[in-house]
Write a protein that binds this DNA or RNA. Sequence first.
DNA 1: TCCTAATGTAAGTAATTACTTACATACATT
DNA 2: AATGTATGTAAGTAATTACTTACATTAGGA
Lengths: 177, 177
Amino acid sequence: MADKTNQIIKAAVDVFIEKGYNATTQDIASKAQVAEVTLFRKFTNKQNLFLTAIQSTIDEHFSMKERQQQTDEPLEKTLTLWFTERSQMLIKKRALVKMLLSESLMGNLPEHINFPVIFYQQLLEQLKPFERQVDIENMARSWVGYFISTVVLGTPTKDIDIARIFITPFVRGEADA
Amino acid sequence: MADKTNQIIKAAVDVFIEKGYNATTQDIASKAQVAEVTLFRKFTNKQNLFLTAIQSTIDEHFSMKERQQQTDEPLEKTLTLWFTERSQMLIKKRALVKMLLSESLMGNLPEHINFPVIFYQQLLEQLKPFERQVDIENMARSWVGYFISTVVLGTPTKDIDIARIFITPFVRGEADA
DNA sequence: TCCTAATGTAAGTAATTACTTACATACATT
DNA sequence: AATGTATGTAAGTAATTACTTACATTAGGA
């Protein structure tokens, strides 16, 4: 049954999130209520299980949702909304993000799922429609930076004016020096 | 001789930067050209060696340099300079920062040397003189975010207007909505 | 009912690795 | 010369852990 396969992936995700790549196959098996040997029969080796599990969460949690700017909505409002949404999502997935970040930095993830990089690229892709009005490269960088520091340092105690900090400085020609 | 002790610390720093906490004591010993058992005679165990090594690099590379604002210099200029300096320093120490960040996220570092946190706090401390004019908490966060994303993503290809992005949005009363 | 595929049990293997112990050596101070 | 301190050599230990092998069990479809 493909059922057990999913049980295992689910458990693997949980355990890997908690302990990183160093989680043991025993941990995972017992969490999945499955014999350890079953992991190997289904996934050949730990690394493969890890990649499968990580890929599945990335697909589930970070796949790009297509977005359209409401036709009559001002640029700033749209972007502020996007920023807020992403930001909240990431905070919710904090443990997952921490793990992905850490493993990416350690070089345990292959290039094509280097988390901060793909996250940045997804943002870029999404911001592309605004290319002409906005410095999207630096905006995306700044967003990624904020997201990471939030995950690492916790949420800020003081309110921030998102538009002023993360949007308008990157909008061309506006409030220019 | 305290000489060997330093040799070992130096080697440990290098090896830990390269491989993280998972570096083996053999690695370190051979890099230090010292018998493995010497590590244990001097540092009791691996964790202690790790902490000693890390502490020493943190002291060496990230100790806070006291700064004074030139009396006649405008606020923005001072802060832009500080930002630029820190930023360049961190890029130089990129490998070290990556490792410290990764190990902090993994929870391998004790609270008092949780890297992003102490780095943030150092920034806060340094920015304190500007407290009245600047939202230093969010400024420091934004700086940390940028530094981390730079270390993780590499340096930006497009120039950025530092003052516009990292300084003025946090200065009170200026260009306010 | 029989066969097959999926799973479990249990034992084991081989590699790694932090850390120890016992003994030898070299060097410096007394 | 004697002694102590720092270091090396070599061997070993104990724990962990990814992964294997052999065999038993169960359940579903032909």
